[in-house]
């Protein structure tokens, strides 16, 4: 077997192992909570009697039977969300699109802008661009995202002083607008501006700092001197050798962060009332809505595991040393 194949199989296998553990753990975690299970799942809410009946029927089955049923399809919870009185996976399905749109856009923007800032900072190490950019990114990095979100919301959404509120203060679309029409698409984009800006600002710092450090490290390498000695211009040396090699850690970071695409925006979605999984998690936690939390927990874990496997595989494709 080629070393590359072995490496790939190993990381996929370890991902599957973790996944299995999470799936099993997820089942027992929520069934081990002390107290009356029905009470827990409904949390004293006014739940219709037929739903309580369904819940009791499910929970009264032998544990092994419940577990096997769950294992056969972990995504077909027979228990409804107490808060929304709907099947949990239906709820999740309705929300996942909004989150992917928000966090996906922010990650793409943040990785592009952050990487660019990091590259320029490293090239102009110690000069003004570097000082400003590094100072800014460090500030953003240490800023809580809900706080930044609130500020943007107040300044550009609500408006302060003579500055009118320009952007919507929440939601994904103006009620009544058809999301598939051109006006609807523009309206969604308009709603995205503030939350995407908040998330991008918070994420890009990480990319900028990692890229800068990694490029500075790479720029001290001998092979750059050798390439210059062969007649390559300094600028080309950086572009052709240093930057691609320094990108490796950033690319891995991007892939690992993709795991948080579905879970990463709890606070920002809450601040901007963005109807995604983050807001759903927040609502589920407030309950707590055990059935919904259980499903969300499973989904988030799977996201992180898949992203880690993907990061491993991408790294192996990009870096021959890993394949050894």
């Amino acid at each position: 077997m080629r070393p590359g194949t072995r490496y790939a199989l190993r990381s996929v296998a370890s991902g599957l192992g973790t996944l299995l553990f999470v799936v099993i753990f997820n089942f027992f975690l929520f069934r081990m909570l002390p107290g009356d299970p029905i009470g827990l799942y409904t949390r004293g809410r006014n739940v219709p009697p037929e739903q309580i009946e369904a819940l009791r029927a499910e929970l009264d089955r032998p544990l092994v039977e419940q577990f096997l049923g769950y294992l056969a399809n972990p995504f077909s919870s027979t228990i409804n969300s107490a808060r929304f009185n709907q099947p949990v996976w239906t709820l999740i399905g309705e929300r996942v699109g909004a989150t992917l749109l928000l966090v996906g856009t922010a990650i793409v923007l943040a990785s592009i802008v952050g990487t660019w800032l990091g590259i320029r900072s490293a090239w102009q190490r110690g000069q003004r661009f570097d000082n400003v950019s590094t100072g800014l990114t460090l500030t953003l990095y240490s800023m809580p995202e809900f706080w930044l979100g609130m500020i943007l919301l107040i300044v550009f959404g609500v408006g302060v002083g003579f500055l009118p509120g320009m952007f919507p203060i929440g939601g994904i679309i103006t009620p009544g607008v058809d999301p598939s029409s051109l006006a609807g698409i523009l309206d969604i984009a308009w709603h995205m501006v503030l939350p995407v800006t908040t998330l991008t600002a918070v994420y890009l710092a990480e990319y900028a700092l990692v890229m800068r450090a990694s490029l500075l490290d790479e720029m001290g390498q001998d092979y750059l001197v050798v390439a210059r000695a062969k007649g390559l211009m300094d600028k080309v040396v950086r572009r052709r050798h240093a930057v691609p090699n320094a990108m490796l850690p950033t690319i891995t970071l991007i892939f690992m962060n993709l795991g948080f695409v579905i879970s990463g925006a709890i606070t920002v979605e809450t601040v901007f009332s963005w109807p995604g999984l983050g807001l759903l998690s927040y609502d589920a936690l407030r309950g707590p809505d055990i059935a919904l939390l259980q499903a969300i927990f499973l989904l988030f874990s799977i996201g992180v595991i898949l992203a880690n496997v993907a990061a491993d595989l991408v790294y192996a494709v990009l870096d021959p040393r890993v394949r050894a």
Binding site: V225, V226, A229, K230, D319
Partner: peptide, 23 residues
């Protein structure tokens, strides 16, 4: 001129691992 000169004179460094782009 410098580029042309670099064809005529070449450099070898101490650490061959570092002198080669690992990728």
């Amino acid at each position: 001129g410098l580029k042309a000169y670099r064809r005529r004179a070449q450099l070898i460094l101490q650490d061959p691992m570092g002198s080669l782009n690992p990728r």
